[in-house]
Design a protein around this nucleic acid. Structure first.
Lengths: 163, 163
DNA sequence: TATTGTTATACTCTATAACTATA
DNA sequence: TATAGTTATAGAGTATAACAATA
């Protein structure tokens, strides 16, 4: 571990950057977009590291939760819920099916639709994954503390209102 | 535009999901990790859309800002500042050089190190990109409002403390 | 005509590992 | 031995466009 530390403390107008000194991230320090990215990245990595994603990758968790909570949901609707194109959802769903976690069934009323529901194995896998997700979320809760409600409200607001 | 709306309102114990109804995202609604991802994703897409990233992709902005604020910084240090491996930074830097936005120079004191600084063209490009980034940040500011300080502090805290 | 889902394809971002050169 | 950077390579995730089936 060498090199400079990472800091948002802008040192004075010292011209050139020497090894061992501190990186000035400058205006980036207070930019919401940048910090959003760093936080999401760190959170994602921590989750992936602890969740042992051998046969259940992080994106799957949201999809499976949505399918569990909305049995009979169509693929496209899963995509809209997680903000992904249908062409992104197709392989994801196929993967879950290959692992025996979901069953796909053509809708009887609209044969274009493929309805989804968890199998018992899928439910068990989700339960196990949820346990690890809960550990991760607990860490986040500890970091965010009593501001969680306001914090999550702002994240939601960004997701829906930014354009 | 069809299908159900996305909502966090869990309807009662109605079993099966019908088209046109509302997707229950259930527990996901209050999960920090999920909302972090949705917010970051939406923010990133909006920025990319408006910034006209023809020859200056989003990751570049942070790197160039750091180089501008730390002339003579080494590649590896840029990587640490943005949380990326050196093998990820190399092509990014090469790309910036190919576009004439930065110059690379071997350090005189340690010839392994490649020091970086913006060219005049790079500075101009960064200025122009900054203008668009500022527009984007202004939108985020408007969404976040007077809670910005606390909000950014929490994002930073997540980025540094999650494990 | 519009929508659901699939496929082919391509692009971006990322890391691991092996390497060179320097320290 | 350790570090800075490069390269080869591979994998995740994503989208666009063209398509078939169905509405």
């Amino acid at each position: 571990m060498s090199g400079r530390r990472i800091s948002s403390q802008p040192t004075a107008a010292n011209a050139s950057s020497a090894p061992g000194s501190t990186v000035r991230i400058g205006v980036l320090a207070s930019v919401i977009g940048f910090n959003l990215r760093m936080a999401q990245d760190a959170s994602f990595r921590a989750f992936a590291k602890h969740a042992g994603l051998d046969h259940l990758k992080p994106g799957r968790y949201a999809a499976m939760t949505i399918i569990r909570d909305n049995p009979g949901i169509a693929q496209g609707e899963v995509g809209r819920a997680i903000g992904r194109d249908k062409s992104t959802v197709t392989p994801l769903i196929q993967d879950l099916q290959r692992q025996g976690f979901i069953v796909r069934e053509a809708s009887s009323t609209d044969r274009r639709r493929v309805t989804l529901r968890l199998t018992r194995a899928g439910d068990a896998a989700l339960t196990s994954l949820s346990r690890r997700a809960r550990d991760h979320e607990r860490k986040l809760d500890a970091i965010v503390g009593d501001q969680k409600t306001a914090f999550v409200a702002l994240l939601k607001k960004i997701a829906t209102e930014i354009s």
